[in-house]
Computed example of a mutant assay.
Amino acid sequence: MKPWPLPFITTTGDVYVAGRTSSTNFPGTTGGAQASNNGDSDAFVAKLDPNLTRILQATYLGGGDDDGALAIAIHPTTGDVYVAGRTLSFIFPGTAGGAQARKSMGYDAFVSRINSSLTQILQSTYLGGEDDDEALAIAIHPTTGEIYVAGRTASTNFPGTTGGAQAGNNGGFDAFVARLNPSLTQILQSTYLGGGDDDEALAIAIHPTTGDVYVAGKTHSPDFPKTAGGARENKSGGSDAFVARLSSGLNQESPIYLPGRTRLR
């Protein structure tokens, strides 16, 4: 699992940060969308002024088991806050009506949409299959507002992968990329991304004009898909970084290895 996410700075200069807390007295949660810790570790989201001199609002986000936020993005026009991470909770706030309203086994990824003032959970959804899944990166399409989430999954039945660039898990943990509508009520398309060993996606970005999806992460797989013709076709030892380019519909892929090897923790 990667370190907790960096802060996200909006056009107004306000700073949003998300992560994980076991505290029952996390600062600024009074009046928040979820004012108290529901048990064990909860995710949190906090909003601070640009000078970091005031906590404008904070909120817990979680159920009765272990939850943590690992990625955050702000919608450029609505200001809505999108948070993604992992959860063990079978009752996670706001999932009713979501794209996947019920939790599967082990850890599931989750995605939540919260208003800009952090006073209302607008929608949440689970995202996962029969084994462990976690979301590690999130991006918002600059034109459509669709939500792209990337991470890793050990599930062989990750939702929405039929018709994706890679419809099946190739072994161990694969990276995944999922595309959801802005209201988080529909999984539009998902895809696995990986070879016969462990792979995980740690970062995602959307091209501002073509809409192509760029995903980066680490791989142990010597057979990572579509590296032929890439800037680095062959894997080195240990774990290599990878960069992959997919169509906005997540039904094409063209990944490449980066030179050398890297260990991302």
Results as ranks from 00 to 15, higher is better:
residue 192 Y to Q: 07
residue 163 G to C: 05
residue 205 A to D: 13
residue 147 I to S: 02
residue 147 I to A: 04
residue 168 G to D: 15
residue 186 Q to V: 15
residue 172 G to Q: 15
residue 165 A to S: 03
residue 212 D to F: 10
residue 186 Q to T: 15
residue 192 Y to F: 14
residue 132 D to Y: 12
residue 148 Y to C: 03
residue 215 V to R: 08
residue 189 Q to S: 10
residue 140 I to F: 12
residue 142 P to W: 00
residue 221 S to D: 09
residue 145 G to Y: 04
residue 199 D to F: 06
residue 171 G to L: 10
residue 183 S to V: 12
residue 148 Y to R: 08
residue 135 A to T: 05
residue 197 D to W: 14
residue 129 G to R: 05
residue 164 G to S: 10
residue 135 A to Y: 01
residue 199 D to L: 07
residue 186 Q to F: 14
residue 185 T to N: 11
residue 198 D to Y: 13
residue 141 H to D: 14
residue 189 Q to G: 07
residue 128 G to Q: 08
residue 164 G to M: 06
residue 207 H to T: 11
residue 142 P to N: 02
residue 134 E to R: 14
residue 198 D to H: 13
residue 205 A to Y: 13
residue 148 Y to D: 04
residue 221 S to N: 09
residue 140 I to P: 08
residue 178 A to P: 08
residue 175 A to T: 05
residue 192 Y to W: 10
residue 184 L to G: 08
residue 191 T to P: 02
residue 128 G to Y: 04
residue 133 D to Q: 08
residue 154 A to N: 14
residue 195 G to L: 03
residue 177 V to H: 11
residue 214 Y to N: 10
residue 197 D to T: 15
residue 221 S to L: 09
residue 187 I to D: 08
residue 216 A to R: 00
residue 152 R to H: 10
residue 222 P to A: 11
residue 209 T to M: 08
residue 130 E to L: 14
